[in-house]
Write a protein that binds this DNA or RNA. Structure first.
Lengths: 217, 217
DNA sequence: CCAGACTTTTGACACTCGTCAAGACTTTGT
DNA sequence: ACAAAGTCTTGACGAGTGTCAAAAGTCTGG
């Protein structure tokens, strides 16, 4: 259910009555397990250098199993992306809902932002990698677009609430706000590889510089 | 000389007195020719799907020649990146130098920005691809960092001049300004694949929304 | 408890990749 | 004009890829 929106992976014919009752859940559990191993590998190696055999090596299965649960490599990656998106775009909802002042919202947002930057670096590296790949691989585009939209809405919720709490209104539209914040975050993700210590505080500084400029009376 | 900074491609021993007089230039011309074919192919297919054979196919040579002029694939790509950078970061210098008002600077900048977005899309796609790859492939990092710095300085020159012409001062530091503008431009490059007609005007709108907010008295 | 459905392993296939070496071709100094 | 140096083509190699089929193993309904 957590991955309901990722469950549409073209089930390859088999599924009519071939799976009984709890079978469908088991298949789904296997897919999730494979997807998690795949995401782990993809985050470490990047899209280009990740092979199905390497994914299987990082799982409890052998490489043949992948084709039992996924039609082909793109189907797996696509499933991974959709599975991933269900876990990532609601990260700041609690902060948005509970903050009672602009400062509280900003610091809460930045705390979570830095936390995910540090703790989930591979996942973010993968995301920027996949978005770049989507420029060349059309099959990835719909999934990437969907996540991009989700992230845009996420940023928009934060900015709207921030404006509310400061008695102002957003001074840029949602795509612009997303592009700006995402630009800063991508810079941080790329920079984190070279300089893990300084990067979080730089990101904080820069977001703090920018946030107030995105709203106006 | 245009590619002087890209000429340090580890010449593989051969070069002592083996090349006479104009030989060094010929080698350099071949390298440039191969780099241009490589950049063309890379821009179309992306880093992951570009093979040396495909690069050679898009040139007047055969695949073996690549290893005569470059030590290995990374050496070629690295050379390409350095060759590319010499052509890209001085694009707005004239606009910056000749503009006599903030509006003139802004419209001139946006004209060139949209022009390169439309006319050199593959090159920009490649750049964002390579920057993503550099997160996984350490050997790419120094070249990517160098270009990033060049682009940051380019944006900073524009913003400084913009502030000057409006009688203000930049309200964000150089890395921040670069990350913001780059975020908008990357969004445009990714979006251009899906929607070539609307994208340029959207980019223009958004830069126009943002530019004034990056300076203050 | 056994036959049939489901799951997983194993090994092979056709292909592409980067690399390199041997030789053919071309240019150049003398 | 001839030999040497330089340039380019050709073909092969080993490794790694995605994919698939056949066999082995596992589970389960009757």
């Amino acid at each position: 259910m957590a991955s309901a929106s990722a469950a549409e992976s073209e089930r390859s014919e088999r599924s009519e009555r071939s799976v009984r009752v709890s079978g469908i859940d088991k298949i789904e559990r296997r897919r999730v397990a494979l997807a998690e191993s795949a995401l782990k590998t993809l985050g470490e190696l990047g899209y280009a250098r990740t092979s199905l055999r390497e994914i299987a090596n990082n799982s409890e299965f052998t490489h043949g199993v992948v084709h039992y649960y996924f039609r082909d490599k793109i189907d797996l990656i696509s499933y991974c992306v959709r599975y991933y998106k269900t876990k990532c775009a609601r990260r700041y909802d609690e902060v948005v809902e509970t903050a009672t002042s602009a400062e509280e919202l900003a610091t809460g947002f930045l705390a979570k932002l830095n936390q995910t930057l540090v703790e989930e670096t591979p996942m973010h590296k993968l995301w920027y990698d996949l978005r770049a790949q989507s420029m060349f691989e059309e099959q990835l585009r719909p999934d990437v677009e969907a996540i991009d939209k989700l992230l845009e809405e996420m940023i928009w919720r934060i900015l709207s609430r921030y404006a509310e709490l400061t008695g102002t209104k957003p001074a840029v539209d949602a795509p612009t706000a997303y592009a700006l914040v995402d630009g800063l975050f991508e810079q941080a993700v790329v920079g984190y590889a070279a300089n893990p210590e300084k990067t979080p505080s730089l990101l904080t500084d820069r977001i703090m510089q920018v946030l107030p400029k995105l709203v106006a009376a």
